[in-house]
Amino acid sequence: MSGEIIGLHHWFGSPPGRYLLAWEQERYDELVADIFGYHALQLGMPGLQGLRANRMPHRWLALGGEEARLLPREASPAEAPAVALLAEAVALPFAEGSLDLVAMPHTLELSVDPHAALREVYRVLVPEGRAVISGLNPLSLWGLRQWRARLYQRCGGGGQLYLPDVGEFITPGRLRDWLRLLGFELESISFGCYRPAAASERWLEHYGWMDGLGARWWPILGAAYVIVAAKRVQGMRLLEPSWRKAPKAAAAQVQVARRH
């Protein structure tokens, strides 16, 4: 890796980026397959087909202005992703309670205000709608190498960043707190990519045995995570005040004539 600033989309073309992208694609295919509804939206990351295994009749890909600008101009129409609309995660052009599923592959890491983006996703989801969120885990071997490189750079050294320079990565625990604060309920969390922070495909393949070992012995230290959260809306019943009800008249006794 060079010492220059690496963007997230450019980094996904590198050997570790392709390795992580392949793991995330498998998780999205598995997690969205059984989420039902009518309308699904993917926010960002055209290189990942987060909705391809879902069976909803209406599925869209939305990109921000910066992401749309970074799309390769030389790609053929068959290879280019089918972008339905341009939209920022903090201001979605959808009515409240109109989407059943929102896929967010690294959307929060690229957002100018990740908490506001989550709040906007909560707004557009229907009750019991799902949000599938993936991100890079700073509490991992990859995160440790990134932290050391930044520390060397601040001290005047020549540290080289391993991960893309997209600001501060969000830990799974912090994201879980945000989700609960907004009213989401965490349904599942998956961790993956336990191989060391190698830059070449040869060394990544050499340490392939660490994926199974890491998933068993240190699962929360994977380089990436995928979270599924559901929008919960508490049921509420309004009771009419007793003073608004008119008093009921007491029933009067009625004499019944009997024939002998």
Results as ranks from 00 to 15, higher is better:
residue 64 G to P: 04
residue 208 G to Y: 01
residue 210 M to A: 14
residue 48 L to A: 01
residue 225 Y to W: 14
residue 253 Q to L: 08
residue 4 E to D: 14
residue 251 A to M: 11
residue 160 Q to P: 02
residue 241 P to D: 15
residue 153 Q to M: 06
residue 161 L to Y: 07
residue 22 A to P: 01
residue 124 V to E: 12
residue 9 H to I: 11
residue 240 E to D: 01
residue 82 A to G: 02
residue 100 D to R: 01
residue 201 E to M: 04
residue 59 R to E: 06
residue 16 P to Q: 06
residue 99 L to D: 07
residue 8 L to R: 06
residue 53 A to R: 10
residue 258 R to F: 04
residue 62 A to H: 08
residue 218 W to M: 13
residue 20 L to Q: 15
residue 93 P to F: 04
residue 65 G to E: 13
residue 70 L to W: 12
residue 95 A to D: 08
residue 197 A to D: 01
residue 64 G to Q: 10
residue 107 T to C: 15
residue 40 A to S: 09
residue 21 L to K: 11
residue 38 Y to P: 01
residue 60 W to T: 03
residue 96 E to C: 03
residue 181 L to H: 13
residue 203 W to T: 08
residue 146 Q to S: 04
residue 246 A to H: 12
residue 111 S to P: 02
residue 177 D to H: 09
residue 3 G to T: 07
residue 54 N to S: 08
residue 34 D to I: 05
residue 73 R to H: 13
residue 155 C to F: 14
residue 210 M to H: 11
residue 125 L to Y: 02
residue 52 R to H: 04
residue 39 H to R: 14
residue 230 A to M: 13
residue 134 S to C: 13
residue 206 H to I: 05
residue 241 P to Y: 12
residue 119 R to M: 04
residue 109 E to C: 05
residue 205 E to Q: 08
residue 26 E to Y: 06
residue 3 G to Y: 06
residue 98 S to L: 00
residue 190 S to W: 08
residue 126 V to D: 14
residue 1 M to A: 13
residue 28 Y to I: 05
residue 152 Y to W: 15
residue 176 R to I: 13
residue 181 L to P: 02
residue 218 W to S: 10
residue 93 P to T: 08
residue 62 A to K: 07
residue 34 D to M: 10
residue 21 L to W: 02
residue 221 L to E: 04
residue 235 G to Q: 08
residue 201 E to P: 00
residue 68 A to S: 14
residue 249 A to V: 02
residue 126 V to M: 14
residue 121 V to N: 07
residue 133 I to D: 01
residue 102 V to P: 01
residue 85 L to R: 09
residue 45 M to Y: 11
residue 249 A to T: 03
residue 196 P to G: 07
residue 162 Y to K: 01
residue 48 L to F: 04
residue 66 E to S: 08
residue 88 E to A: 01
residue 123 R to P: 03
residue 93 P to L: 09
residue 47 G to C: 00
residue 55 R to S: 09
residue 219 P to I: 03
residue 95 A to R: 08
residue 143 G to C: 00
residue 25 Q to T: 01
residue 70 L to F: 11
residue 155 C to L: 15
residue 57 P to A: 03
residue 247 P to A: 11
residue 227 I to E: 07
residue 202 R to N: 04
residue 22 A to F: 05
residue 165 D to H: 10
residue 206 H to G: 14
residue 23 W to F: 00
residue 199 A to Y: 12
residue 207 Y to C: 06
residue 119 R to W: 02
residue 98 S to M: 02
residue 58 H to S: 12
residue 181 L to K: 12
residue 90 V to Y: 15
residue 147 W to V: 10
residue 214 G to H: 04
residue 120 E to I: 01
residue 88 E to P: 00
residue 151 L to V: 02
residue 146 Q to H: 04
residue 18 R to Y: 03
residue 242 S to V: 00
residue 78 A to W: 09
residue 1 M to I: 13
residue 39 H to N: 15
residue 142 W to Y: 08
residue 18 R to E: 01
residue 221 L to I: 03
residue 137 N to G: 03
residue 37 G to Q: 02
residue 38 Y to R: 15
residue 65 G to Y: 09
residue 234 Q to Y: 14
residue 208 G to H: 11
residue 170 I to P: 07
residue 68 A to F: 10
residue 21 L to V: 00
residue 80 A to E: 12
residue 226 V to C: 13
residue 87 A to Q: 13
residue 191 F to D: 12
residue 213 L to C: 10
residue 224 A to H: 15
residue 42 Q to C: 05
residue 49 Q to M: 14
